[in-house]
Amino acid sequence: MTINATFSAGRNIAMKTPPHLYEVTVQFYRDVLGLKQITKHAPSVGFEFGSNNLWIDSVPGISQAEIWLEVITNDVSSAAEYLKSAGIVRCDEIEPLPEGFQAFWVSSPASIVHLICKDSESW
């Protein structure tokens, strides 16, 4: 299959934590490690993590933390077709995306969630 889409690593990493671990996780990155907190997207909590952004989310119903990664593409439609042809499972039901946001969710074979999106500046 010919692919028109290109892929590159995004700058956003999301850590989904169970509610009972959320505050201590935020405290670890903010107070123990002393990472600079990102405040421009409040109430979302994020930290500068080298050249990346680390976002910490409280997610009811999970029992352990998960890491979600962002992948940038130049062509969301072509990327979706290509990944489908490669047998990669979409999981759009995992978390709603904002209206008009050019993106979708997939799961890697190792069950790591990836946001495939047009532009990381939208996050």
Results as ranks from 00 to 15, higher is better:
Cys91Tyr: 02
Trp105Ser: 13
Ala9Ser: 15
Leu97Asn: 07
Ile56Thr: 01
Phe104Val: 00
Gln64Phe: 12
Ile94Glu: 03
Lys118Met: 08
Pro19Ala: 02
Asp31His: 08
Asn4Trp: 05
Ile94His: 05
Cys91Trp: 01
Ser51His: 09
Asp57Gly: 03
Gly87Gln: 11
Phe28Ser: 01
Lys118Thr: 07
Glu121Tyr: 09
Ile88Pro: 02
Ala80Arg: 15
Ser111Glu: 12
Val32Thr: 15
Thr73His: 05
Met15Ile: 09
Ser120Thr: 09
Glu95Pro: 03
Pro109Asn: 10
Lys84Ile: 10
Val76Lys: 01
Glu95Lys: 07
Phe49Ile: 00
Lys40Leu: 10
Pro96His: 06
Trp123Asp: 06
Asp75Gln: 07
Ser51Glu: 13
Lys36Cys: 00
Phe101Pro: 10
Ser44His: 07
Thr39Lys: 13
Val113Cys: 04
His20Met: 11
Arg90Phe: 11
Ser51Met: 05
Ser77Asn: 13
Leu115Lys: 14
Leu54His: 02
Gly50Tyr: 02
Glu93Leu: 00
Ala86Asn: 07
Leu115Cys: 12
Gly46Ala: 05
Thr2Gly: 06
Asp31Tyr: 08
Val59Pro: 02
Ala42Trp: 06
Lys36Gln: 13
Glu81Phe: 06
His114Val: 13
Asn12Ile: 11
Ile94Val: 10
Gly87Val: 10
Val76Arg: 03
His114Tyr: 14
Ile13Asn: 02
Asn4Val: 01
Pro18Asp: 08
Val59Cys: 04
Ala65Arg: 04
Thr25Glu: 01
Ile94Gln: 04
Ala86Trp: 00
Val71Met: 14
Arg11Leu: 11
Ser51Val: 09
Lys36Ala: 14
Ala80Val: 00
Asn74Trp: 09
Lys16Cys: 07
Lys40Glu: 14
Ser63Arg: 08
Ala14Trp: 13
Ala110Ser: 15
Pro60Gly: 00
Ser78Ala: 15
Glu95Thr: 03
Asn12Ala: 11
Asp75Met: 03
Glu95Arg: 07
Met15Leu: 14
Ile72Arg: 14
Ala42Val: 10
Glu23Ala: 13
Ile88Arg: 03
Phe28Thr: 01
Lys118Asp: 15
Thr17Val: 14
Ser77Asp: 13
Ala103Asn: 12
Val106His: 03
Gly87Glu: 10
Lys16Ala: 15
Pro98Val: 06
Tyr29Leu: 10
Leu83Trp: 05
Asn53Ser: 02
Thr2Val: 11
Gly87Pro: 06
Ser108Gln: 07
Gly46Phe: 05
Tyr82His: 15
Ser77His: 10
